[in-house]
Write a protein that binds this DNA or RNA. Structure first.
Lengths: 247, 247
DNA sequence: CGCCGGTTTGATTAAAGTCAAACGATGTGG
DNA sequence: CCACATCGTTTGACTTTAATCAAACCGGCG
């Protein structure tokens, strides 16, 4: 478990093969969408100096709630879920992350949630203390993280509205619209859900059975088509959008 | 409605009476707990220059979701609720604010939630554009806002766990513990709840009836004592704390 | 005193959860 | 190559929690 390579800030097998030791981040596919976009060459070099690129297999736990926060991470490919547990094992997924997302914005000394990969994932790993030191010298990076934190806060409030006041159908519809928005940005109505029904349930505050039944119901109503378990075609995206808003 | 005074950054009737025009923020009771604590005298002077102190009566709506975000606010006294609505009127309160809390950290051009006073409230009001300009010159202020945003994010994730996975009893217990923590910090087990049962319900994703029944149940079980509707004495704070964590 | 809003209590319903079994891909070993 | 075990998913029957509908209560105020 947790194999890793010491090459810095190069993330895919392809990138690794062509890694340029002098400028390791230049090939990073997620650079443009990550906090790294805020850094000039000097900043990128300084960051790459404290960075380790790490690939994880699917279903790998790599952050545990309550543990000392030794490292912070940038997801560069794949899907990660963040979750919190109650004492008796009830689980709430607080977010799904993908390329460009940062893990640890709100972290102080200890992690406040656990993180597990959903798919195979690559991350850039930074020692927390050194990252915080670096932040002092790159105000643009801090500004960028602030912006990302604000976006996370908006997303969290959306989720609070969903969990507090939406029905199961509205939650699933909202989830589909979020995945759609998060996708290519094109109007592509074919979604890929890399996470299991169990993950979706724990994200939406439902049970596996209710998630499954609701997908079936949407299929029967002609709102979606299901290709296997992970491919969803939105047949009536507008109707789903309305459902998501409670109309 | 929305009466206001042009005196700058002086917040209570008492403070108003003794306002020092040269140094209007010096008497502010919430300065130490607000973002203003990050400013030196020059910064405080610059901020006070774009500030209007505004008192609001209880139950006054002063921010509306979707409206252009002309102003940002700092709460200096009283309690405010932030909420979002679904089309059919279902309401979710995303947070209660009090002295020192900032309204608009995550705001871009338009407000993302509505705000209404619970009690009589005083705020410092800043034109958004001018505030953002000022931020550029006071990195310590921006750092402080970033820190506050991170704390809000942690609180939001706690609320997501609560709404997604806790029972009604656990939600009420969690709410009581949050109010307790938010209080004087002393071990004072007597809480004052300035908000209505309806507000508590809309904050916890429950109905008025369930909130009321759960309080009654806690009273019958000897966990709390109720003095009227707004005073709650925690008779067994430890048991409530355990309930809140799902133990 | 009696109205009025918010709150509490009671009876019933409905939405989602639980328990349980069947289904269907995927992967393994005979 | 196919039987079979496994794991995640779907479907079904039933239960439970909290919501809904409705009435009584209570405290403050005109």
């Amino acid at each position: 478990m947790t194999p890793f390579v010491q090459t810095q800030c190069t993330h895919t097998a392809a990138a690794l093969a062509t890694a340029d030791v002098e400028d390791p981040c230049s090939h990073c596919e997620s650079r443009a969408v990550s906090m790294c976009a805020s850094l000039d060459e000097a900043g990128l070099a300084a960051l790459s100096h404290i960075t380790t690129a790490v690939p994880y297999a699917a279903k790998t736990d790599f952050v545990s709630e309550g543990e000392p926060a030794t490292y912070l991470f940038n997801v560069t490919s794949g899907t990660v879920k963040l979750y919190r547990l109650l004492a008796d094992g009830r689980r709430q997924i607080v977010g799904f992350l993908s390329a460009g997302d940062f893990i640890g914005i709100a972290v102080d000394d200890c992690y406040l949630y656990s993180a597990e990969t959903v798919t195979p994932v690559t991350v850039c790993r930074f020692p927390r203390v050194r990252f915080k030191a670096l932040l002092e010298n790159y105000p643009a990076l801090e500004k960028r993280l602030f912006l990302m934190a604000r976006h996370e806060l908006v997303a969290a409030q959306d989720q609070i509205l969903l969990l507090g006041r939406k029905t199961a159908k509205e939650r699933i519809a909202s989830f589909l619209m979020t995945v759609k928005r998060h996708g290519t940005g094109t109007g592509d109505p074919v979604l890929v859900l890399p996470m299991s029904r169990s993950d979706i349930a724990d994200y939406l505050g439902l049970t596996i059975e209710t998630v499954s039944r609701t997908f079936t119901q949407f299929r029967q109503e002609g709102l979606i088509r299901l290709d296997g378990v992970s491919n969803v075609v939105l047949l009536q995206p507008d109707a789903l959008a309305e459902l998501a808003e409670g109309l």
